[in-house]
Amino acid sequence: MADAALPHDHHDAHGHDDHGHGHLVENNFLGLPNLKLAMWAFLGSECMFFGSLIAVYFFYHGLSIDGPLPADVFSVTVTSISTFVLLASSFTMAMAVDNMKTGKVQAAKLFLLSTAFLGLIFVGFQVYEFQHFWLDKGLALQTSLFASSFYVMTGTHGTHVTVGIIWLLMVWSFIHRGKIKAGNYLPVEVAGLYWHFVDIVWIIIFTFVYLLEF
């Protein structure tokens, strides 16, 4: 039974001999290791989660009674830079998986740290953005429907990036301590699936929430 993030020998109940009933015993393995299948199912669940949050934002779009409007506070330049940083982190994440696959553990570790670092910069941009909107533009969490739905939606995304950073650092630590060995790239790949997902969610938010205002 493989469990959690370190399936050294992911469950292989599918190599049994067929006891002479070959015509009745078909191969029923679907081709995805447990951990990866679980990740895909979880990401499906996350789609519903972010789908609901983004839907809430658009449900209330233009209905705010008071306070600054999106076009008054957004700076496409600043958010474009942070978006670019997050996109770049998806590249370094892919490189980490690729290097782990080919056994270049040191390079993989470096790329994992770079990914976490780029993620941190993104979160830093978001912290800056929030305090700027709040203190300079007068958009507090409680100001309007726009403020509430914007902060909760992007804040939830930022929380996901933060969780991703912690996750990457954990994977790094396990590789560093030799608990994830060269060739066992599944834990890195699964962390990568999550990271790319969070990145894609941001692309959707950036496109529809920020760019379409202008």
């Binding site: 669940s45 989660f49 609901s52 809430v56 969490l141 409680q142 309007s144 509430s148 909760v152």
Partner: peptide, 22 residues
């Protein structure tokens, strides 16, 4: 199906604890 109500509950919790306006 739980994620949508989880979002609804999170919004409710924000409304009740942190004064959002959902």
């Amino acid at each position: 199906s739980f994620p949508p109500v989880a979002v609804g509950l999170i919004l409710l919790i924000f409304d009740r604890f942190f004064g959002t306006t959902f």
